[in-house]
């Protein structure tokens, strides 16, 4: 159990914020599987609620969708948008396993390798599309390599992502005024220790581009790398609960640290 990973905030199977090469759910090469998740991230200034699901086909293809609601809480009122102003986006994802089996191939160093895309559609025409004049749609492309070193009870993952997104797409895509529109490569990593069949602990990090710093007054829109430390628990084969401490770096004015809780059901 837990060898299929959990659902990231963007819907793809992986850790909390990093997609892995694993195809979500426990479906084998002969089966179709499905999963659903709900995740909440609560920092001192903001709340992110994300929910969605994925369908996986024959341990080969994973199709996912996630809906993210980013609540500005008091900050919304402070900048004249009204209390609890929320920016929402939808992430539609596809991931294809190219080769390798992270679990079964324990006699080779070859990891499981997958490529994926995430099409992100930000709904916010007032701030993101309006006041900031940013693009509201973008496509992320990523490649992930994941290995479970079972003899050491370890899971290791490395992901490279080409993206134009600001803060996962919550603040749109590319720079202000149509500038800085090129893809930039970001690096994401995860490591986890399997403690029991039902329990794993680990950490993740994710580099982010910084296209909006300088916009609208100095450092207020600086974007920084994100980290988390998680505990994942699967009381049964179909349920997993992940709790994490997330350090998301600066998001609008202040560094955001907080709690991450996620529930996933898999079939």
């Amino acid at each position: 159990m837990l060898t299929g990973g959990v659902s990231t905030i963007e819907g793809a199977g992986g850790g909390g914020i990093v997609p892995w090469a694993l195809i979500g759910s426990y479906a084998t090469r002969n089966q179709i599987g499905a999963s659903a998740f709900v995740t909440g991230v609560d920092t001192q200034d903001f709340t992110l609620a994300s929910y969605g699901g994925a369908v996986s086909f024959y341990n080969r293809l994973e199709l996912s969708v996630a809906r993210q609601n980013f609540n500005l809480r008091d900050v919304g009122a402070a900048i004249g948008l009204g209390n609890r102003y929320t920016i929402s986006q939808t992430v539609i994802g596809a991931k294809l396993r190219l080769f390798g089996d992270a679990v079964l191939d324990q006699d080779t160093i070859l990891p499981q390798f997958a490529v994926g895309v995430q099409y992100k559609i930000n709904d916010d025409k007032t701030v993101v599309g309006g006041a900031l004049g940013l693009k509201r749609k973008g496509v992320d492309i990523y490649a992930s390599a994941t290995k479970i070193v079972l003899s050491q009870s370890l899971l290791l993952n490395a992901t490279v992502r080409l993206t134009k997104a600001n803060q996962y797409g919550i603040l749109g895509f590319g720079g202000l005024g149509g500038k800085d529109q090129a893809y930039k490569a970001q690096f994401e990593g995860s490591a986890a220790v399997l403690l029991t069949r039902k329990l794993a602990i680990g950490g993740e990090f994710r580099t982010k581009s910084n296209r909006l710093e300088g916009a609208l007054g100095g450092t207020s829109f600086r974007e920084e790398n994100a980290y988390d430390f998680f505990v994942a628990y699967a009381p049964t084969r179909n349920i997993s609960i992940t709790a994490a401490y997330a350090r998301l770096g600066q998001i609008a004015l202040a560094r955001q640290n907080g709690a991450y809780v996620s529930l996933q059901l898999g079939f």
Binding site: Q106, D107, I109, K147, S151, A158, V160, K184, A185, F187
Partner: peptide, 26 residues
Amino acid sequence: MLKTTLSLALLLGASTAAYAQENLAP
């Protein structure tokens, strides 16, 4: 940036591989 990130990924991949190799069933 792309080159740096890719080489970082390869470096991590390589060190992971070396680590895994040492620990694979002899």
